[in-house]
Design a protein around this nucleic acid. Sequence first.
DNA 1: TCTGGGGTCCTAGGACCC
DNA 2: TCTGGGGTCCTAGGACCC
Length: 401
Amino acid sequence: MNAFFASVEQQANPELQGKPIAVVGGHGRTVITTSSYEARAKGVKTGMAVWEGKRACPELIIVVGDNKKYTYTSTRINEIFRDYTPEVEAFSIDESWLDVTHSLSIFGSAVSIAYLIKARIRHSFGITCSIGIAPNKLLAKLASDMQKPDGLTIITPEDVSRTLERLPIGDLCGVGKKMQKHLNMLSIYTCGELGRCEEERLTRKFGIIGKRLKEMGQGIDNSPVIQFGEEDDVKSVGHSSTLERDLSDPVEIRRFLLRLAEMVGSRARRYNVSGKTIHLYVRYADFYSSWGKQTTLKSHTNQSDDIYRAALGILHTVELEQPVRLLGISLSNLKHQDEQLPLFVEDRKKLEATKAMDAVNARFGDMVVTYGSLLPGKEQSGSHVIPPSWRPDGIKNVDVK
DNA sequence: TCTGGGGTCCTAGGACCC
DNA sequence: TCTGGGGTCCTAGGACCC
């Protein structure tokens, strides 16, 4: 989708149409997640702080994002995709791959499918998208970025080498700033040069991904489109949040930690996974210094208080050097939780209580019932931004309000 | 009144076991 | 009077994606 969140907002509120708007994650310390093309024309970019955006574009309209709108729209759009092929892989909330190899005989061609999809998305949601058609995922993603907004770009097998010859390596999905710099030091600037580089030279410098890099330079990508439900099991579940103000008070820090532990635990329980490793992440007031530590328990858990205690245990091994700007907890080393009753009565009771609490919250909203120490608990809600790993269903459907 | 949040994958080094 | 090798698990840190 083009400028997805901003487009959805402009569609929902006609007063915003044709104007420079920026969607932000929350009211506190937040950044611009998406801006409209009108705002981009003035230099507003994703990741900017609000004041930076306003400096670039004084008439910029700030809209606090409404994630429900975006997840709903994204889910519906992916349903449209599945009318044309079951092989749909969501890459993020606003990008998907479709393998239409087996649909061509029904719909004629990839191009005709692309036009049908564009028309339906515009008709149903009033927004535009850019589509890339190519022999594989790497090239399709590349093609989709070539014309915006409302683009349609085709890279045929015959076009591949001509397209890649002078393309900067940084345009490839998977080559970030650091990798680009390292490749530049080897005098590699274009995909053409990357594709011609000796594999041995690349593996010597980059190890196992050297081979993959050369292939990318040649436009080779054999990775399949993984359709919904066929994805690998999720490997970690976590939440982190920048606090509305930096915290030094241990009581307040613990309170926020408990909140995070409950967010992580309830999500793990909802999707029936439990984990053995708890990771605590702290970012200090100066923004740049931070640390993360993890600990592994003797057995798997998805109970919020276990997670909280583990995180607290890590915190107690550290002397905080500065006030805390951000706290994060994640749970990994996951396995699917098979239903089994704990041995001891106390543990069974705890499980029952947790279940009852989760059931109420499932019906009336997250944290409607929660730990007493989290009440009244409004002052540090943090901001909520949709992560790109979001999926229409399952555990990656992060419940953000 | 500065700078979000959720993930995955890879590397490297150490502990531990047989 | 010197001491192997294979494997797993754990921790920490960094790059990358949107």
